[in-house]
């Protein structure tokens, strides 16, 4: 650990006092040494860019130059302009719906693999990752093929006579965005839920049966609460990135499915107003974090009530 100076060694409390080991030989030091490449990487490529974005959000674009005097004007625009309010609200609503639907759809799959996967658990998990082998873009495009005017869905429904002319409500709206995103994120929701279900001690479920619960009750009172950490992480894993998703709304969202990321992209691109784009990004980040926190609290409350 060249980063840490020798004086630090001297400042550390000598504990245990008699058997003083050099700090560089301690478990803590080797732990830090092991994570330091990742830590440096994260600081350099995650933390610093965010700092730059935050800094930009308090500056002003002056044609080709940046005016570095502190101002809150960008935030006034981001929070005050009806267009940005609408986009932000719609993004949050879509991501919330996507997360709820994804978790709801993924939970039974994860539950099935964990409880009834038998010796084929790994095969099942492997199969779930198969769609991820193709590019994200391709998967989104294929939903266009499925949901489009002359697409699989419409021709299918036409041929069995449920509809007599192709539906135009399938593609280029927020529903299409939700469907596509749920499909894209399902695998990422199944895995954390599966892991938390695997950790549920099966004798606890037996104990619940022994104490009089039927299968549904033992699920609601034991399995679900104990797998909540997985549900929460699945929820966050889906919700946080979908708020800022840019590709899916652009490709299948149409006018009605535009989300905040499109506006941010516009400010950094055509609009050439980086500070406003930065302010929009920071606003989105803060609101998403708050929403994530609220969602976790709400889920915990829900389970407490079920008890």
């Amino acid at each position: 650990m060249a980063v840490l100076s020798g004086t630090e060694v001297e400042q550390r409390p000598a504990y245990p006092p008699k058997n003083r080991v050099r700090w560089t030989a301690s478990e803590e030091a080797s732990g830090l040494a092991l994570i330091s490449p990742t830590l440096l990487y994260a600081v350099a490529l995650l933390f610093l860019p965010i700092l730059i974005v935050v800094a930009y959000s308090f500056w002003t674009q002056d044609y080709l130059t940046i005016d570095r005097t502190f101002t809150l004007q960008n935030y006034r625009t981001a929070l005050g302009e009806p267009i940005y309010q609408d986009l932000l609200l719609r993004s949050l609503a879509i991501s919330l719906v996507v997360s709820v639907v994804t978790v709801t759809v993924s939970y039974p799959i994860a539950w099935f693999i964990s409880f009834h996967g038998g010796v084929h658990k790994n095969l099942w998990l492997f199969l779930i990752t198969v769609p991820c082998w193709t590019s994200y873009l391709l998967r989104v495009m294929s939903w266009k093929v499925i949901l489009g005017y002359g697409g699989v869905m419409n021709t299918g429904l036409l041929s069995i006579g449920i509809i007599d002319k192709p539906l135009t409500s399938l593609l280029y709206n927020s529903n299409a965005v939700v469907i596509t995103l749920v499909h894209s994120w399902a695998a990422f929701a199944i895995l954390p839920i599966f892991v938390s279900l695997e950790k549920v001690d099966r004798s606890l479920i037996e104990a619940a049966h022994d104490l009089g619960d039927n299968k549904l009750m033992s699920f609601l009172r034991v399995t679900l609460p104990l797998s909540l950490p997985g549900v929460i992480s699945a929820f966050l894993i889906v919700m946080i990135p979908t708020v800022g998703d840019y590709v899916t709304p652009k490709l299948v969202g149409g006018k009605d499915g535009v989300m905040i990321a499109t506006a941010i992209q516009a400010q950094f691109g055509k609009g050439a107003n980086w500070p406003l784009g930065a302010a929009l990004s920071v606003t989105t980040m803060v609101i998403v974090s708050a929403m994530a926190g609220l969602a976790v609290l709400a889920l915990k409350l829900l389970v407490r009530m079920a008890k």
Binding site: D201, S203, L204, E206, A207, A208, H209, D210, L211, G212, D213, N214, R221, V222, P225, L226, K307
Partner: peptide, 28 residues
């Protein structure tokens, strides 16, 4: 099924519900 038998079991691992306190476990 076990939930409709007049038996109750003390499990080897005790199977105490970790998300409940002692009273809630007993009241389960």
């Amino acid at each position: 099924p076990p939930n409709r038998r007049p038996t109750n079991m003390v499990f080897q691992s005790y199977a105490i519900f970790p998300h409940l306190d002692v009273e809630e476990n007993v009241a389960y």
